[in-house]
Design a protein around this nucleic acid. Structure first.
Lengths: 116, 116
DNA sequence: TTGACGCATACCTATATGGGAATATGATGG
DNA sequence: CCATCATATTCCCATATAGGTATGCGTCAA
């Protein structure tokens, strides 16, 4: 495993949701569990394609599956998205501040630190 | 360009922040502008490595650069993270609800729709 | 047990990356 | 114009994907 090109998608939620179609799958699953075939059809992808994306999502824990007769229903487990939401949330003050005021902000921080 | 392996990181913020080191760069930049060399040093990567990551971040608009004498200072432009924050926020109710109650929730949705 | 159906895998191909090393570019001070 | 510092690029390589097609596997109904 020398010189990995990128963190495996199977081990990182950030990477797992970097794929547009996987994000679409997650969105669809908000309205309830679905079998693979249905997802594939709704997203216009092949069944193997959907299965592969679902596998990635399952391995990072964003999706759960359970057997239901002949079918296998996939359901959302969005808790893994929480860290992503929180991480981006850590930048919230930066998009609320304009760029000009950002500099002031940083100055304030520095000053506050000196006054500690 | 047939059969793209994945959306180009240069055109998608989700993909750009899928790389751990790029996320670290963004975090560092919250405390102010930095030249490439400093970033590279603080993150224990080579200068070319840092430059390449910064290029990706710049192309998706998460980072701005300006010349300052001999140096080139990179600064944060976190507005591009907002869509990610909002997208993940769309799943918030799913991690607040337990899995058992989730099913009820979906039932409620369906019922509400019928009663429209 | 045997189809048929639903889904997961294996295989193959073109691309996209990340990382390291060497090198090209740019801007600055003399 | 030159030497130098700060960065960006270019090459090269190994690996990670995404997608398509063919195929294996497990489950259910008759």
């Amino acid at each position: 495993m020398e010189s990995m090109a990128r963190a495996a998608t199977t081990s990182d939620v950030f990477n797992a949701i970097a794929e547009p179609q996987r994000r679409e799958i997650l969105v669809l699953l908000r309205s309830g569990e679905r079998p693979v075939t249905e997802l594939a059809q709704e997203l216009g992808m092949t069944q193997p394609g959907a299965s592969k994306h679902l596998r990635v999502l399952r391995e990072v824990g964003l999706v759960r599956d359970r057997r239901a007769g002949k079918q296998r229903l996939y359901g959302l487990d969005a808790s893994g998205l929480r860290p992503v939401h929180e991480w981006t949330g850590g930048f919230e003050r930066f998009w609320n501040e304009s760029f000009d005021r950002l500099d002031e902000y940083v100055q304030d921080l520095k000053q506050a630190k000196q006054e500690e």
